[in-house]
């Protein structure tokens, strides 16, 4: 994993820190209370590089909860709700974009 100090961090809008839970791979987000949540709504949203870096560093301290944390863009709607900021993150939230075989 690239150290956050070596990582180029450019923050131009609201971002969150996300990762996958170690035991089962489920997508998780870093909360303001320095825990992990499976709900994007619980994520700490930051808007500048220093805060993003601090959030990421906190996430990297222990790697037995979640794996591969990184900074991901989000968007806020008119009601202030958070939504994933790009297609990749939308797919991580909602799953594949087609019906799964059943």
């Amino acid at each position: 994993m690239t150290s956050p100090l070596q990582q180029k961090i450019k923050v131009t809008g609201p971002v969150v820190v996300t990762a996958n839970r170690l035991a089962d791979g489920v997508v998780v987000w870093r909360t303001a209370g320095n825990t992990w949540s499976t709900q994007l709504a619980d994520a700490a949203v930051v808007t500048n590089a220093a805060d993003a870096l601090a959030l990421l560093e906190g996430a990297q301290k222990r790697d037995t909860d979640a794996v591969g944390p990184y900074i991901a863009p989000v968007e806020r709607d008119a009601e202030g709700l958070i939504h994933p900021g790009n297609l990749r993150e939308r797919i991580r939230v909602a799953g594949p974009t087609f019906d799964l075989p059943a």
Partner: peptide, 8 residues
């Protein structure tokens, strides 16, 4: 075993 978007 890989780690992908949603799971292992």
């Amino acid at each position: 075993v890989y780690l992908q978007l949603h799971a292992y």
